[in-house]
Amino acid sequence: MSDAPAAPPRASAESTSAAPRLLFVPPRARPAWRLVLARVGAMCVVELQKLRHDRTELYTRAVQPALWLLIFGETFTRIRAIPTGGIPYLDYLAPGIIAQSAMFIAIFYGIMIIWERDSGVLTKLLVTPTPRAALVAGKAFAAGVKSIVQAVVVIAIAALLGVALTWNPVRLLGVVAVVLLGSAFFSCLSMTIAGIVLTRDRLMGIGQAITMPLFFGSNALYPVALMPGWLQAVSKANPLSYQVDALRGLLLGIHAHLALDFGVLVLAAAVGITSASALLGRLAR
């Protein structure tokens, strides 16, 4: 006689009985912070894929900061007309140009939101269970990814020109955080303006109108002490000034108010995400 067939393992029987229960029990909801991180990560991956497939934007955007360093920086280093606390003017200028190039990338990020609205992508994103703040934060820090790539290019140009930059890994991680936070604020500012004006042409005009005042109304080109009183007040309210101050302290090792700088940038990014999230639904109507 043949042997009796072996009984099926208990584990498989348990898994078979558990399978129908999975059809009726919804999956556990992920915490909000995990949802935000997942959205931010997805947006950052998308931006990296765009840069990998089309590097022309990276090359063209490197022209303007290179000209600032090569022409403006080299010239004013020879003139020595601006007091910089004993460091060469080119060294003093380099962190300001890093912040400027990052701001120029982020300040027009709202155009992409309007394009997504026109193509129907934004409506599809808004019907997902993802919170609006997570969507805005993901897009804001995705703009920061582009800005970090741009910052690496500017740092490389500055190093070739002989700027005495630090290569301490901890300080460089701080530079990444500063660029991310600054870009997050300016991209959220752009998305907020997009939620108000609703069209690309108006957004482009407003963006071009505010970029130069933000740049010249900061400490990117000259110390705050040289400014008239009213411009000093503008500079103290300008998040770009705190971004530049943090970059100078991290990259050059000079005195900076890093705790204040990071605090202002975190607060500015939080306010920007809140305001852009509030206007995102208006943009999608």
Score class of each variant (00 low, 15 high):
residue 47 E to R: 08
residue 62 A to Y: 03
residue 200 R to G: 15
residue 53 H to P: 04
residue 263 G to H: 10
residue 3 D to R: 15
residue 103 M to P: 00
residue 14 E to I: 15
residue 116 E to H: 07
residue 195 G to H: 04
residue 167 W to I: 11
residue 198 L to V: 09
residue 25 V to L: 14
residue 78 R to K: 15
residue 30 R to L: 13
residue 150 Q to D: 09
residue 73 G to M: 10
residue 184 A to T: 05
residue 137 A to W: 02
residue 176 V to P: 04
residue 159 A to L: 14
residue 89 Y to I: 10
residue 87 I to Q: 12
residue 150 Q to Y: 03
residue 232 Q to G: 13
residue 229 G to D: 14
residue 121 V to L: 12
residue 116 E to D: 13
residue 227 M to C: 06
residue 121 V to S: 08
residue 136 V to W: 04
residue 58 L to I: 08
residue 151 A to L: 04
residue 45 V to M: 05
residue 247 L to Y: 01
residue 91 D to C: 10
residue 210 I to E: 03
residue 212 M to R: 00
residue 97 I to D: 03
residue 150 Q to F: 06
residue 117 R to E: 08
residue 177 A to W: 00
residue 171 R to H: 11
residue 182 G to I: 04
residue 263 G to V: 05
residue 197 V to Y: 04
residue 58 L to R: 00
residue 152 V to R: 02
residue 157 I to W: 06
residue 39 R to D: 03
residue 222 Y to E: 06
residue 86 G to V: 12
residue 106 A to W: 01
residue 39 R to V: 00
residue 139 K to C: 03
residue 9 P to Y: 11
residue 129 P to A: 15
residue 177 A to T: 05
residue 17 S to E: 15
residue 165 L to V: 11
residue 51 L to D: 09
residue 276 A to L: 03
residue 148 I to L: 13
residue 52 R to W: 12
residue 198 L to W: 05
residue 144 G to N: 01
residue 187 S to F: 06
residue 232 Q to M: 11
